[in-house]
């Protein structure tokens, strides 16, 4: 009889679990999606930084010595 009770309890637990949503699983998936976004952002940031430094270099080059011949 004890086993029967245990079985029914297990069954109830199973139903309870099945009706529960996977919170951690959802968080994990979101977390991985954020990783994708962050990686994309980093890629864009790196490209923007390179562009900025290239523009600065262009300015440096245009800032020729000629302008400083007094």
């Amino acid at each position: 009889m004890k086993k029967f009770k245990l079985l029914i309890l297990c069954f109830a637990a199973m139903l309870l679990i099945a009706s529960c949503s996977f919170k951690n699983a959802e968080t994990a998936q979101n977390s991985m999606r954020e990783v994708n976004h962050s990686a994309e952002d980093l890629r864009e940031d790196s490209e923007a930084s390179k562009k900025t430094s290239e523009e600065l270099k262009k300015h440096e080059q245009s800032e020729s010595v000629e302008t400083h011949k007094w």
Binding site: F22, K23, N24, A25, E26, T27, A28, S31, M32, E34, V35
Partner: peptide, 13 residues
């Protein structure tokens, strides 16, 4: 699933 997801979630963070 939940336990491993929790680890994955932490690693994702």
């Amino acid at each position: 699933i939940e336990k491993n997801s929790s680890i994955i979630s932490k690693q994702g963070m």
